[in-house]
Design a protein around this nucleic acid. Sequence first.
DNA 1: GCCGGGTGATAATGCGTATTGGCGGATGAG
DNA 2: CTCATCCGCCAATACGCATTATCACCCGGC
Lengths: 347, 347
Amino acid sequence: MTSKSRKITQREIARIAGVSQTTVSTVLNDREGSTARIPAATRARVMEAIERSAYVADPAARRLAGLDNQIIGVFTYEPALSPESMDFYGPLLNGIERSAETLGCDLLFFTSSPVQDGRRKLFHRRTRLGLADGCILLGQEMDGADLDRLVDERFPFVAVGRRDETDARVPYVGIDYAAPTVDLIDRAVGLGHERAVYVHRGRETATARDRRGAVQSPAATRQIRTTLITDEDLTAVAGTVRDAGATLVLAEDAFLAEEVVHVLQTEGFDVPNAVSVAALAEVRGHRIGERALTGFHVRRRQVAAEALALLQRLITTAPEEWDALDTQRLLSADLEAGETVVERRPA
Amino acid sequence: MTSKSRKITQREIARIAGVSQTTVSTVLNDREGSTARIPAATRARVMEAIERSAYVADPAARRLAGLDNQIIGVFTYEPALSPESMDFYGPLLNGIERSAETLGCDLLFFTSSPVQDGRRKLFHRRTRLGLADGCILLGQEMDGADLDRLVDERFPFVAVGRRDETDARVPYVGIDYAAPTVDLIDRAVGLGHERAVYVHRGRETATARDRRGAVQSPAATRQIRTTLITDEDLTAVAGTVRDAGATLVLAEDAFLAEEVVHVLQTEGFDVPNAVSVAALAEVRGHRIGERALTGFHVRRRQVAAEALALLQRLITTAPEEWDALDTQRLLSADLEAGETVVERRPA
DNA sequence: GCCGGGTGATAATGCGTATTGGCGGATGAG
DNA sequence: CTCATCCGCCAATACGCATTATCACCCGGC
């Protein structure tokens, strides 16, 4: 073997097959029409030259010539492949990889983006964003300017997570926490609970508002009285529970739930027999003592799959017609029964 | 805002700044020389136009013009981001991501490669390999044809894992199991062991030969007598141990070690008090009852970092001078003390 | 013998960037 | 006054591919 093969181009193939570069291109893309007809014999000759020389098209040239590339960009605001971020990013990346595989797309991770204020910047002088046909954005919080610019440039992208707070036109696939929150409360009511405390982090993100909204919604307040407090002074939790006569504590996320339980137990509460506890977020892998924490489960793999499907639709649709598309999608989190919300014991 | 911004090119910038496209390119790459001199005033004018219009270079065009792209390809023979592969790929990918970040490179995952015979094929008609400046190959076993072709085409790449069996010219970063195997045996001898059994999988890979070679090396056999058996009939292990009067069992990997222990315990052996056990491979996370398994630890993050460093050297070196480079590198696995190799009790 | 129409191809062009080889004008040396 | 520099800039070109516009040829009909 050991051909000194530098780089095989269509021109090279053309020379071997005794045709023009145009013909090679036509054969490769089997483009047929009144303007370009290739008889079987010629086609075969060209094909053979291609097979024998193991030609592969230069993706850069294809891209420059205006074709798409089957490359999907993946941007994360922090390192995605570190052990710490794996809990969050792992299932998402897995879902993305699987979808990309079936779509026949490669994945371009923008790991080179310079870090500013502790998070990566999507746009910079040497960004390779333009190589991708579209881009998936991952991260707990994103830069509004980045999103605006993507929208302005009509670059196909999809954010994972609710993003309507920054720009109403941002396409996203997010999680609905409101519906399962109401479900969870229903279930607690069914177990006899009448007073609850909701401990939240006082954030003003869309999902935080969603959860508060659900807790304070008519559907919920009709059945249970809930006192809201923030995590600023966790030691106050015990007092609030006592004062409100609450038998159920909801926490904004699983970590907060764990802290709250610790405080309650220190104050002599029996969890969950005297006070039930649940988190309004992902709880897989979180336990309170021996018991699995009650809360939600988010099917992240499915979120990723939906995001890629949406992105694919954007890529294959002309920007002018994006308005007609349904580009903002919410998936409901699943209720994860767990074992920390139990029947209310008569006092 | 809301510029209808299609795509800003150097020509556009040139028009705004009242110069030629050549000048813009020169400023951008601050190329200076007798052939192209730009006075500060012009440079400033151009720079301002660039800043204001938020210009970013088209990577495809750059690539086509022969420059490098700061893109490193990552090829795995099976899905890399699935939960099952994470044990193996996780630390490697993490190391790659970190190195890429400091090198300012993006990562292109070739997830689109069509699957054939249960593993992905690197080369296909639409491969985007050419977009990358170089490529990292990951996977337990690789396709020799792929490696040959990469070598032939002088495409910069580095395989993770020993690959000298396929082609002597394949650049790789692998793990040395021979040295730590001898170390492990030394230590066992120091604890009084005189007879051992090595249970291996009967494979003919480079690393498998390495381990067998180390076990049977003069340095080892001088101190301890080792009987080799394969995993074909694990129930035979107990008999072999008894017949050989062995007090130490070495297994080719941690999973095999676990199986072996199970067999031994079923047969009434006290592990590790009567029979010590160790694996000649990664053991982190593996336990025998309450005890951490003795064996090796592979610093995969470091392996990845070395691989990227080597790849970078290949990329920045002309192919004609690759021969002068040291392109095959072995890193020694660390001894992981564990608790399953203990002092030999007098019978 | 001329014309229309279909067939099988190709030359020319463009995509956005980098680079080579100038070119006109000013300045300085002889 | 002439010739050689040097300065500041630009036209032209290449990169590999896709696409548009043509072109030469042959065949049949009139």
